[in-house]
């Protein structure tokens, strides 16, 4: 998966982000400040369990911060990318661009 046609060191793709559903989640969280489960489910077309499982992996890696709080009497879980997550996403994009640019024309 991680390949480059030239250069001494091959660019390393972040496998955690590279998974399609997690890439969607990271992209959406990158362009907003924060969002909750319901918003991401509706927007990305993921099921509750699917989203929850991917988010827990991203949280474990320190890419996503999960805020469990209340708005009035209603519980609200707010998700946002950490600085580490933002850096990792930027790096992932840079690596992917490099790989694509290195493809033979």
């Amino acid at each position: 998966m991680t390949s480059s046609s030239e250069g001494d060191s091959e660019p390393e793709i972040d496998k955690l982000i590279h998974e399609p559903a997690r890439l969607k989640i990271m992209t959406q969280l990158y362009v907003v400040e924060s969002a909750d489960y319901v918003f991401l489910m509706g927007l990305l077309g993921l099921t509750w369990g699917n989203l929850s499982s991917h988010l827990s992996k991203l949280e474990t890696a320190g890419y996503v911060e999960v805020d469990k709080g209340y708005e009035g009497k209603k519980p609200r879980t707010v998700l946002r990318l950490t600085e580490k997550g933002r850096d990792a996403f930027r790096e992932y994009r840079a690596v992917m661009k490099r790989i694509i640019n290195d493809l033979p024309k």
């Binding site: 319901v38 918003f39 991401l40």
Partner: peptide, 16 residues
């Protein structure tokens, strides 16, 4: 939005 929007399509806050 707290009353009608967020319970239906969820909450989001955009970057300023």
């Amino acid at each position: 939005r707290e009353r009608y929007t967020y319970p239906r399509i969820g909450y989001v806050q955009f970057r300023m």
